[in-house]
Design a protein around this nucleic acid. Structure first.
Length: 920
DNA sequence: GCTTAGGATTTG
């Protein structure tokens, strides 16, 4: 509330009777009154009222500089809901009547949707209350004492990443994949229903704080299911079940208290209350729920709206949630803080994994801290390890094993080394369980894998179970409830029983194996040891000294109770930053390797390139320069004086920006300024605004044809679209080479651009054609768009002179109009790695050479954008270990730039280098 | 084709 923008400095901020646009903190010395609390007895002298303008009437002249204007302001949603419980049914919308110059100023300066603060008003009885059902009172603002302040309206933003996002403004957007967030219409198209106002059988949008969640788990149907419970300021808790086939489409909820926004969820009556279900067009965005910290949307949606309004709602939910007493979750702890026998959540990085059997997977992870408890040891054959198996001694000492079972093993099998993982509901158990154990510990896993086969093939075993022979009473209830028979033959694959029955089988299996299998001669333990153990590359545990009872093992049990699960965390997650810092501070390049298993896999990612030529494979880039230079190391580059060239071989560890479309820029070859590319929503609004008052273009060298387009009603009256042809071009039979249009929307422009060669949107300036401002393209050709430099252009729209059959191009048009053309540029920051060394370099000047693509094409078509994406995924595979990244032959230049603080900094840029191999 | 799940620790 303290950031009021300075729009109009000519007006005195404290003078009554004016619309003020630049007051720092309006009405702060006064008491703010909620609209619903206003009554005839309200003391107006010390009061201020704040509300959003939802209606703005016309300025009515009473003659001789006297005016009157009626508007309706409404309490903003946040204030409304916080007052909802205490207030009566009095309307939160009130008529405001402005008189005199205040009315005139308001008419000019204030738009519908903006938020205003009024002071110095008087309260009257609203004569229209029975008719408009608004507040029974009205606010009267006359020139003598009244003051009205306008809060700056922050332009909403739309984040647009793919063509899908711009479909609404068809035809296809040239800059879709690569456009920058920009403003669109000021009124959001989404409204959010408070959770206590949900009615069954509706499709709604909601916001909420997550008070319970399960990571997505495989259902018996086709999809994964995320189960959530959310709440909001109404304190209503609402269950949600989100079904999506793809894991990445699920809500990215990582912690209780996260904030979630869902669009298009279906309300459904269930168990006496409302629950939510995703429905067609569902989209979800989540936010970290901790107060402070930036509001960063987490989503895999290709397009989503995100405006200042959303930011405000998130902040409000955060603030509200901070004071609530939500039930505690499993604690999120570091390995250094693990308490035996107490379930915990762990944020960690996967180093490698090894399959144990169909239903168990061993994950080797770390989080940069040391677990103080003695841990069970595991023996793993090197051949079973997926990922870099040898670590420096220091790193290895910090790494721990997690055994993940059943449904989690299915998720875990898809994880790549170096992925950051949230493991929820880990059980830091001792390897030995209380109660009788029938089998030596080393066999348990073998038996676990054997059980499926046995149970699947030997139906009689299970039907032979008797209640008095069960060890765990809770399992028996399940047996009674569901019986075992339906288990068989229903599910293909390693998990052939439905999730709901895991309980029965999991608890029954030890019993089955212990008391039935052997007694019936179906399984011989000797036989098992001889046949199955050999096939099992991971044996559990291998105790070496110490008491097994005191050794901890981390188990992620099957099932999803209490939110147990595995989830990949995005690389920009704030919870990873600390882990990353700690992990990077630990040396990885000492030679004291701790080799897991019998045969070590050579560690490629920490090895200097000179010794690894053969293992590296062909380079993915080649130098196109003609320098005769020796290869040097990154370290040598860093130590050298600037303004030189170097040849290096390195891997691409990471790059920015993500998302990639942000890399594409516009830049001026003359003044070298770089600017962002506006997105279609911004352009759409700019053109739509300009189309409302196109004016008349009467240049004598133009032929004008106007069409009157009918409107859809009072909201959108008809408009006039004019096409102007150059007489000169017409004379030469080339009228279609370049046309000028006025009154066109972006949609019109795109349609016309498809039919003509070049198209110049113009507007009337005193009857002559003039260009629109340079925030929009000044010229269109098909899906290509050309922008001009605000600094370097001297615009005047003139007739294009051409000689005979000369082909028109954008340079000629720009030159004729005095426009300095902007060029497309691609700016990326690459982090190179060479053994233990890293170096940050830029890709800018020779980006086209690097990707072998025209940036003009990248701006205009998806295929070229895909080429860049494909190349980057090849050079830096998502989720892969650095060992899997191809090596790059690079030519680097070094140079210095002057920073804002006057200091000089050395920069590095990739030049004259092309990628060789890109995936199909 | 249009369900799946609808919180409530495993028994490794």
């Amino acid at each position: 509330d303290n950031n009021y923008c300075c729009v109009n400095t000519e007006r005195c901020p404290t003078m009554p009777g004016h619309v003020v646009l630049d007051q720092a903190s309006p009405g702060s010395h006064l008491t703010r009154i909620l609209i619903s609390m206003i009554n005839a007895a309200t003391d107006c002298s010390q009061a201020s009222v704040r509300g959003k303008v939802i209606q703005k009437g016309p300025l009515v002249s009473l003659g001789d500089e006297d005016f009157v204007l009626k508007a309706v302001i409404e309490e903003e949603a946040s204030a409304q809901s916080s007052s909802a419980r205490s207030s009566s049914s009095i309307s939160a919308s009130i008529n405001v009547i402005l008189f005199g110059p205040l009315a005139r100023d308001f008419s000019e300066a204030v738009n519908q949707g903006e938020v205003v603060v009024v002071t110095g008003f008087t309260v009257g009885k609203s004569p229209t209350a029975h008719k408009d059902r608004l507040h029974p009172c009205n606010l009267l603002l006359s020139a003598e004492d009244a003051c009205l302040y306008v809060l700056p309206s922050q332009p909403p933003r739309v984040v647009s990443r793919s063509p899908v996002a711009s479909k609404r403004t068809s035809p296809p957007s040239p800059s879709s994949e690569v456009s920058k967030p920009a403003k669109v219409s000021k009124v959001s198209k989404y409204t959010y229903v408070p959770l206590n106002e949900l009615k069954p059988g509706a499709v709604v949008n909601v916001y909420g704080v997550v008070v319970f969640f399960k990571q997505p788990y495989k259902t018996r149907g086709t999809d994964y299911c995320s189960s959530l419970k959310i709440t909001d300021q109404s304190n209503q808790k609402v269950g949600c079940n989100i079904f999506c086939e793809r894991l990445e489409d699920h809500p990215k909820v990582f912690q209780l208290g996260d904030i979630i926004r869902m669009h298009r969820v279906k309300t459904q009556a269930f168990g006496g209350s409302i629950s939510l279900l995703n429905t067609f067009g569902f989209s979800v965005v989540t936010f970290d729920g901790r107060p402070k910290g930036p509001v960063v949307p987490r989503t895999s949606s290709k397009s989503f709206q995100f405006e200042s309004k959303d930011e405000r709602i998130v902040e409000e939910l955060r603030t509200w949630a901070a004071d609530q007493d939500f039930l505690p979750t499993t604690p999120r702890v570091h390995l250094s803080g693990v308490q035996p026998q107490s379930y915990f959540d762990l944020t960690c990085q996967l180093l490698w994994k090894a399959p144990v059997d169909n239903s168990c997977l061993l994950l080797k992870v770390w989080d940069g801290t040391r677990c103080p408890h003695p841990l069970q040891k595991f023996t793993v054959e090197a051949s079973a390890i997926e990922g870099p198996s040898s670590l420096s001694r220091e790193r290895s000492d910090l790494a721990v094993v997690i055994l993940v079972f059943d449904n989690h093993a299915d998720i875990g099998r898809h994880l790549k080394a170096w992925t950051h993982v949230l493991a929820s509901g880990l059980d830091p158990c001792s390897g030995l369980r209380p109660g009788p154990m029938f089998w030596p510990q080393t066999w348990t896993h073998v038996l676990a894998s054997a059980r499926t086969h046995v149970l699947a093939s030997a139906r009689t075993l299970c039907s032979g179970l008797r209640p008095d022979s069960m060890f765990w009473p809770q399992a028996w209830t399940h047996v009674l409830a569901s019986g075992l028979d339906p288990c068989f033959g229903l599910r293909p694959g390693p998990m052939f029983w439905p999730q709901a029955w895991t309980h029965v089988l999991a608890s029954a299996r030890t019993h089955v194996l212990a008391t039935v299998l052997v007694s019936q001669g179906l399984l011989d333990p000797e036989d098992l040891e001889g046949k199955v153990l050999r096939k099992c590359p991971t044996s559990v545990p291998c105790s070496s000294g110490g008491s097994v009872q005191n050794q901890l093992a981390f188990h992620l049990h099957g099932g999803t109770s209490f939110g147990r699960g595995l989830r990949v965390l995005p690389d920009d997650s704030p919870d990873i930053q600390e882990l990353r810092r700690v992990v990077e501070s630990i040396p990885e390049d000492d030679n004291d390797f701790d080799v897991e298993g019998d045969s070590a896999i050579m560690e490629t990612w920490g090895t200097p390139p000179e010794t690894m030529d053969d293992a590296r494979g062909p380079c993915a880039t080649e130098r196109r320069c003609s320098h005769a230079l020796q290869q040097v190391t990154l370290e040598e580059v860093k130590q050298s004086a600037p303004d030189q060239r170097f040849h290096v071989t390195a891997q691409l560890k990471s790059y920015q920006p993500r998302p990639l479309y942000q890399a594409l820029k516009l830049h001026c070859p003359k003044c070298r300024a770089i600017q962002e590319i506006p997105d279609d929503d911004f352009l759409s609004e700019a053109f739509s605004e300009a189309s409302k008052a196109p004016g008349c273009v009467t240049d004598p060298w133009l032929l004008t044809e106007s069409i009157l387009l009918p409107g859809d009603g009072p909201q959108s009256p008809g408009r006039s679209l004019s096409i102007h042809l150059s007489k000169e071009l017409c004379k030469n039979g080339r009228s279609k080479d370049l046309i000028y249009v006025t009154g066109a929307t972006l949609e019109d422009v795109c349609q016309l651009a498809a039919a003509y060669q070049y198209m110049l949107p113009v507007m009337s300036s005193g009857g002559s054609a003039s260009l629109m401002d340079f925030s929009v393209p000044f010229l269109f050709r098909g899906t290509k768009r050309y922008y001009g430099c605000k600094q370097c252009s001297q615009v005047s729209v003139k007739e294009l002179k051409i000689d005979g059959s000369e082909e028109i191009n954008e340079e000629m048009i720009a030159e004729a109009m005095g426009v300095q053309l902007l060029q497309y540029g691609l700016l990326m920051k690459l982090q190179l790695q060479q053994g233990p060394d890293t170096l940050e370099v830029l890709l800018w000047r020779d980006a086209e050479t690097f990707f072998q693509v025209s940036l003009e094409d990248v701006a205009a078509n998806q295929e070229a954008q895909n080429k860049i994406r494909g190349t980057m995924d090849f050079l830096c595979p998502p989720g892969g270990s650095i060992a899997d990244h191809p090596w790059l032959d690079l030519c680097l230049t070094t140079y210095t730039v002057q920073e804002d603080d006057g200091l000089k900094r050395v920069c590095y840029q990739v030049c004259q280098t092309s990628t060789i191999t890109t995936p199909a």
